[in-house]
Nucleic acid binder design. Structure first.
Lengths: 175, 175
DNA sequence: GCGAGTTGTCTTCCACGGAAGACAACTTAT
DNA sequence: ATAAGTTGTCTTCCGTGGAAGACAACTCGC
C-alpha cells in the first residue's frame, strides 16, 4: 500500500533535486491529498441521496442560515466559493429534486431567492447528522489537544494565504 | 472580509442544530477550503506555462522518478490518483505541447511508456523551483516546530483515512 | 499452440464548474 | 423622466475528469 505517498515524493525530489527543499510538500501536498481523500470518504451519504457534494453545499448553506432558509444566488455563490453560473446549475438540479425553490426577490426583481422546501429541510437535517458523524470518526485518532493544535495551525496557514502577501505576486492591498 | 468563513459556519450550525457538534468542520472544513485556496494560489506558474495543475502533475511525476524520466500510463494513474482515462488525456495534451512522448513498452506491447522530452525536463526543472518557492512562502508564517507538528497531525489523519475503518462503512480488510 | 480469463490503455459519454457574454432591473445624475 | 452605468442572474461554450466498455496483448493450464 502507498501508505506514505507524500513521503515517497519528498524522497524522490530529494534525490533528483538535492538543491531544493521539498519539505513544504509534507504539509501542502498532504493537505491537497487529504482533501481529495476526504471528499471521497465523506461522499457516501450524499451519493445515497443522489446528491453531488456540491449540491449538498447548497442545502447546508441554506439550512444553517436559519429560518426561513433562504439566500439569493449571489449569497450562495459567496458562501460556496463558486461562480454564480455554478450556483444556477446546482439550484436547477435541486429544484428538479424538489429540495429547493427559486423565486423572484421582493426587494430586487433581479434577485432570485433560493429557499429550502420542507423536504429539503428534512433531508438536510438528516444528512448533516451523518456527515458530522463521519467527520468526527475521521478525527477520532486525534486527541482534543491535537485537534486544537491542528485547528490553530490550519487557521494560521489560511490567514497567510488569504492575506494575499505570501508569494512573488505581492498582494493588492487597497489602502 | 470573510476572514473566518469556517468559524462562521460552525457558529451557524451551533445556533441551528445545538444538538450536534460542528467542531469537526474546524479541521476538515478548513482542510477542504485550504486545498481549494492553495490550488489557486499555486496556479500562476503553471498558468504562465499554459499548463493545467493536473498536467504539471504528470511532468513532476516523471521528473522526480529520475532518469530516464519514464513511467507507464498505469503507473502515472497510481501516482496521481486519477483514472487511466484522465492520464490518457493529460498525456495527449502534453504531447501536443512537445513536453512528453509516448511509445509502446518493450516489455509489454499493451503498455505505453510516457517519457519527458528534453524540453519537458527543462520546463519541469524550472517550474518545480518556482512551485516549491511558492509553497515555502505560504508556510513562512509557521515556525519549524509548528511545521513538524502539522506534518505529524496531518499524517495521522491520513493514516486514519487510508486505514479505511474510520466510519460506518466498516473497512474491507482482506485478511 | 490454443482458448479462457486477465490486464493495460484508450475511447465514448456524461457530469460538473469556470469564463465571458446576454439580459433585465437597479441606481444615479441631470 | 431619461440616459448611462452598474449589478444580479442566467446562458453558452469549453475544459477537465470519472465510469464503463472496447480492444489488443498478456498469462496460464492443458
Amino acid at each position: 500500500m502507498d501508505d506514505d505517498r507524500i513521503a515517497d515524493i519528498v524522497g524522490q525530489w530529494g534525490r533528483e533535486r538535492p538543491d531544493l527543499d521539498p519539505s513544504p510538500l509534507l504539509i501542502i501536498g498532504r493537505i491537497q491529498q487529504l482533501a481529495a481523500v476526504l471528499d471521497e470518504a465523506l461522499r457516501p451519504p450524499f451519493a445515497a441521496a443522489d446528491l453531488g457534494n456540491g449540491d449538498f453545499d447548497v442545502l447546508a448553506a441554506l439550512r444553517r442560515e436559519g429560518e426561513p432558509y433562504t439566500l439569493t444566488a449571489g449569497q450562495l455563490s459567496q458562501r460556496m466559493l463558486v461562480t454564480t453560473g455554478a450556483v444556477t446549475k446546482r439550484v436547477d438540479r435541486l429544484i428538479a429534486r424538489g429540495l429547493v425553490s427559486r423565486s423572484v426577490s421582493a426587494a430586487d426583481a433581479r434577485g432570485r431567492v433560493v429557499g429550502l422546501t420542507s423536504t429539503g429541510v428534512a433531508l438536510t437535517d438528516r444528512l448533516i447528522e451523518e456527515h458530522l458523524a463521519n467527520e468526527a470518526a475521521i478525527l477520532r485518532g486525534l486527541t482534543d489537544s491535537d485537534r486544537r493544535t491542528l485547528e490553530r495551525l490550519l487557521a494560521a496557514m489560511n490567514r497567510t494565504l488569504t492575506s494575499g502577501d505570501f508569494g512573488p505576486e505581492g498582494g493588492d492591498h487597497d489602502g
